[in-house]
Design a protein around this nucleic acid. Structure first.
Lengths: 231, 231
DNA sequence: ACGTTCCATTGATCCGGGTCAAATAATTTT
DNA sequence: AAAATTATTTGACCCGGATCAATGGAACGT
C-alpha cells in the first residue's frame, strides 16, 4: 500500500506546497477502503468533504430514469473528486462508485476550507484543478453534441495513446461497457464501431489491447468525422 | 450606463468583500464596449484575463467543422466568463461572442492573481463560481446524453420560469435559433417540438412569449420524457 | 471442472432528429 | 414603404444509433 504522504505529495492538487504543509494536510485526511462496485456517494447527497484516490479507480456518473448511464469521469490515483459541494454549498450533482477495489483519502470540508484561507497557493491549485475540469467538460459537451460516435472513439483512442506513452499499442483501462458509457453510447454500438474500424485498417483489437495502425486516419476521423479520403 | 462599482458590488463573484477592496478591484478592471455579434475571443486564443458582463449579453459556444453550433452558456450582467485560462494556464476552450450590444469589464490575469493571494475570500468566491459552473455542465451533459429534445426544452422552460418570477408566462431572452443551439439541436427541430407542445396543451406560444399551461406535464416530460399519462 | 453470472458480439428493426428545400414571417436597411 | 436580409416554420426524406433478441465467451464462486 502506498503511503498517504506519497499520494498527497504526488497529487497535482497539492503540487508546490512545502513539506510541512503536506504533513498538515495528511493529518486532516481520513483513509477509507472500498471494495469494487461500491457507491461512494449519490447525486443529491450532502457533501461534507472531498476525496482523493489513493489506490484503485472511481467513476463519476449520471443515470437516466430508463437506466442508461453516462460516465463523466474516471479517476485514478492522485486525482481528487467530489469537490463541487465543498465550494458551491450545494449537493452532489452526480454519483460516484468504485470500479475497482480502492483506497480513498477523505478531506473534511471545514478543515480543508480552513487550510485554504491560510495557504493561498492551495486555493490556486484548487482553482487550477476545477478549471481543468471545466475544460474537460467543455470537450465532452462538444463530443456529445457535435461529433458522432466514431469520432468520439477515435478522439478517445488518441487521447489514451498520449496518456500511455506506448508507441502505437494501447490498453483500455476500463471495460468496453464502461467505455461505451463514457462516450455516451451503448456497448452494442461501440462493438460495431470497433469492428468497422478494424475492417477499415484503422486499428487492430485484441481484447483490451488496441493497436493504432493509422494515426492520420484516426486524427482526421476524430476531427471532421471522415476517415482520410484518398484525393 | 450602470456604474462599474455597482456592477462589481452586485456580482456574486465579489460578494461579501469589503467596500475598500471592491474599489481596488474596480481599479484593475478595464471597461470595453462591443457591438452586437462581435467576437470577444476564440477557442485556442491565449487568455490574459477574464471578463465580467456589465451590460448586454454574451454567448460561449463551440462550432463543429460542418458549422453546427453548441452554446455552452449565455451570460448577462454580473456574470464573469473566460476564467479558465487564468487558472489552468491553458488556452480558451471555446469561443465568446456578444449577442447584444454589450459593455464588459476586463480583469487582467496577473493583477487578479495578485489580489487573490492577499484576499482569500476572493479565492473562495471564485471557487464557488467555478463549482457552480461545473454543476451546470454536469446538467448539460446529462441533458445531451440522457434526455431527448422535448425533455430538454421542458426543463429549460421550467428553469426560465424560476429565473423570471412570472406566474406562468415567460419570455425568451434569446432567439429561437440560439435556444436550439443551447439545447443541442437545430431550429427546425425546436420549431416542430414547440408546435407539438402547443397541440398537447402544455404551452401556448406567441412570438417570444410562452405561457406554461401545464406545469405538471412539463415537469414529468422533463424528467422521464413522458407527458403525464392518464392512468 | 462446472454451472452461474456477467460481458461482448452480431443481426433485425425502429425511431428521433438531422438534412435539404421551400415558403412565410419578421427585421433591418436604404 | 419597398427592398433586402435574416429568422421561423413546414414538408419530404434519410441516417446514425438505440432497442430488442439471441448467441458465444470469459470470469468467478463453490
Amino acid at each position: 500500500m502506498t503511503r498517504d504522504l506519497d499520494i498527497i505529495s504526488s497529487a497535482l492538487i497539492f503540487e508546490g506546497l512545502p513539506e510541512q504543509h503536506l504533513e498538515q494536510i495528511k493529518n486532516v485526511s481520513v483513509s477509507e477502503n472500498y471494495p469494487k462496485g461500491k457507491i461512494i456517494f449519490m447525486e443529491q447527497d450532502e457533501g461534507n468533504g472531498f476525496y482523493l484516490v489513493a489506490e484503485g479507480r472511481v467513476k463519476i456518473f449520471k443515470v437516466s430514469p430508463s437506466g442508461k448511464e453516462q460516465i463523466l469521469h474516471v479517476f485514478g490515483p492522485g486525482e481528487p473528486f467530489g469537490e463541487v459541494p465543498v465550494f458551491s454549498g450545494r449537493r452532489f450533482p452526480a454519483n460516484a462508485e468504485t470500479i475497482r477495489k480502492s483506497r480513498l483519502l477523505f478531506f473534511p470540508r471545514t478543515a480543508f476550507l480552513g487550510m485554504i484561507t491560510s495557504h493561498p497557493s492551495l486555493a490556486l491549485n484548487m482553482l487550477a484543478v476545477l478549471s481543468m475540469r471545466l475544460r474537460q467538460f467543455t470537450q465532452q459537451i462538444e463530443n456529445l453534441s457535435l461529433k458522432e460516435v466514431p469520432a468520439r472513439l477515435a478522439a478517445y483512442l488518441l487521447y489514451l495513446s498520449t496518456e500511455q506513452e506506448s508507441e502505437d499499442s494501447i490498453t483500455l483501462d476500463i471495460s468496453k461497457g464502461q467505455l461505451a458509457s463514457l462516450l455516451g453510447t451503448i456497448p452494442e454500438t461501440l462493438s460495431r464501431i470497433l469492428n468497422r474500424m478494424n475492417k477499415q485498417g484503422l486499428i487492430e483489437t485484441k481484447d483490451r489491447t488496441i493497436r493504432l495502425l493509422n494515426r492520420e486516419g484516426l486524427e482526421s476521423l476524430s476531427i471532421d468525422g471522415k476517415k482520410n479520403e484518398v484525393t
